[in-house]
């Protein structure tokens, strides 16, 4: 049992980070903290992809006679794209937070809900 858990430690880390991020998004009222949570959530998925491309004993996929075993580069490349997407999302999110702060004077969710109410 313990062995099974230890063998798949990368998954456990990913799942742990995922839950931490998800919880932060849901539970925190501060918009910036929400974004931080969202980032952790996304990063956990990046880790999932990257670790799954790793082949035990493999190196980076450089063509050279000295190496026989390579890690799978495709997940890594995919995640490069996903990271770009994540950066864009964070940037846009932070931009929105700045604008919200400008027009509402707060970035706390419950205060924002009160601010507009049922007008």
């Amino acid at each position: 049992m313990l062995q099974v858990i230890l063998d798949h430690y990368n998954y456990w880390i990913a799942i742990f980070l995922m839950m931490v991020g998800f919880y932060t998004v849901v539970a925190r009222g501060n918009l910036v903290k929400k974004l931080v949570g969202l980032n952790i959530f996304q990063t956990s998925v990046f880790l999932l992809y990257i670790s799954m491309g790793k082949v035990t004993g493999g190196t980076a996929p450089i063509l050279d006679d000295r190496f026989q075993v390579y890690s799978n580069p495709i997940p890594h490349v995919l995640i490069l794209t996903a990271i770009v997407v994540g950066v864009a999302t964070t940037a846009l999110g932070l931009g929105l937070v700045v604008r919200i702060r400008e027009s509402y004077g707060t970035i706390e969710e419950d205060e924002l809900d009160l601010a507009d109410g049922e007008t």
């Binding site: 929400k34 996304q42 846009l92 929105l96 937070v97 919200i100 027009s103 507009d116």
Partner: peptide
């Protein structure tokens, strides 16, 4: 200004949805 909070809300939920899809 409600548009800003609406967009933020959509951003959070949309990103979670997309990340689920990615998983």
């Amino acid at each position: 200004r409600k548009a800003l909070t609406a967009a933020f809300q959509y951003l959070i939920m949309g990103t979670i949805g997309a990340t689920f899809f990615l998983i």
